[in-house]
Design a binder for these strands. Structure first.
Lengths: 169, 169
DNA sequence: GGGGGATTGTTCGTATACTAACAAGAACAG
DNA sequence: CTGTTCTTGTTAGTATACGAACAATCCCCC
């Protein structure tokens, strides 16, 4: 029954023809998303390379800078990372002296995170050029295309990891 | 100097205002692409879970099925994977009995890859439902939005990993 | 007020990614 | 031929992702 809705929804997936060979990898959204994401990571490295930081580590620092102090799990949710993943990211940022961990007196389970002076300084410098990553990534698109792309991306991805996001601007 | 073109290109990144705090993580394309990609991977797992296969392994099998036989590096390029990455993917697919490797008499460096009978059978069954992954991922978008999104994704990602793709359908 | 259930973090294991350093083979210039 | 260069594939090391199993807490309800 799902097939019905599917067939009706987008003719790109039409594959009732002669050979069922109508499946084209390069036309699958997941595949294209992976390529685009890899591309964006390249841009990140090109622009932020000097800081020797990864996109996820940057995301964690940026969010910590915004919020001042949060628990590890909370930060993970805000940056779309697993508890297991954020754990590793924070460990590396701590080892690097950018993040400080303390325990919450109210709740023994929490690890209250915050930026160190070095961390604040670093993220401030990084934020200064970080916007260029988005610019470069969106370069092949016109302004209108970029806006539409941006909105579509929010609809697809925001469902899972982000808190309801008011479309700023 | 780059800043000039950048500032002119999209006002979203305008951040000359009072506080330079105008940087919002959730508005960065790279971040949103990561979220969307994670979302698409979820969909893949939801739809293809029964086959116990990952998106990349599926991509490799699908391409092998299309081409019949290619070298490992070639397959990696076509599926947007590093030599190091495709190496591991093929190793796992071989261990599973889906892929067969032989050496090319003309060129001793190449590892000619091909599907085994089990591999062919598996990928055929998988292709039957794989289209649903894209459908589900694009569900939050209207047809028009999905088309625009698709085109934008191609422009952004295709530059790096895909051979010039004629959008035949 | 104590126990069951939910939350927070950690650890383990597997699968990507990508860099760097290498070994082999092929291509090609001279 | 021979040396240089390019391509292919491997291996080692680092950083994500994510499922699963766990210990420590916390919270809420009977």
């Amino acid at each position: 029954m799902a097939a019905v809705r599917i067939r009706g929804k987008r003719e790109r997936a039409a594959k009732r023809g002669p050979a069922a060979a109508a499946y084209v990898l390069e036309q699958q959204v997941g595949f294209l998303l992976r390529c685009a994401h890899q591309r964006a990571s390249e841009m990140f490295k090109a622009v932020m390379g000097d800081f020797g930081i990864t996109p996820r580590q940057f995301a964690a620092l940026a969010k910590l800078d915004d919020l001042g102090s949060v628990s590890q799990n909370q930060l993970g949710r805000l940056t779309a990372m697993d508890p297991a993943t954020i754990s590793g990211v924070i460990a590396r940022l701590s080892a690097r002296g950018y993040v400080r961990q303390s325990s919450d007196p109210r709740d023994g389970r929490l690890r209250a995170l915050g930026l160190t002076a070095a961390g604040e300084q670093a993220i401030t410098a990084m934020k200064g050029v970080a916007a260029e990553v988005s610019e470069r990534t969106l370069e092949p698109l016109s302004n209108a295309e970029a806006d539409a792309f941006f909105k579509a991306l929010c609809k697809i991805g925001a469902t899972s990891c982000l808190p309801p996001q008011s479309s700023r601007n």
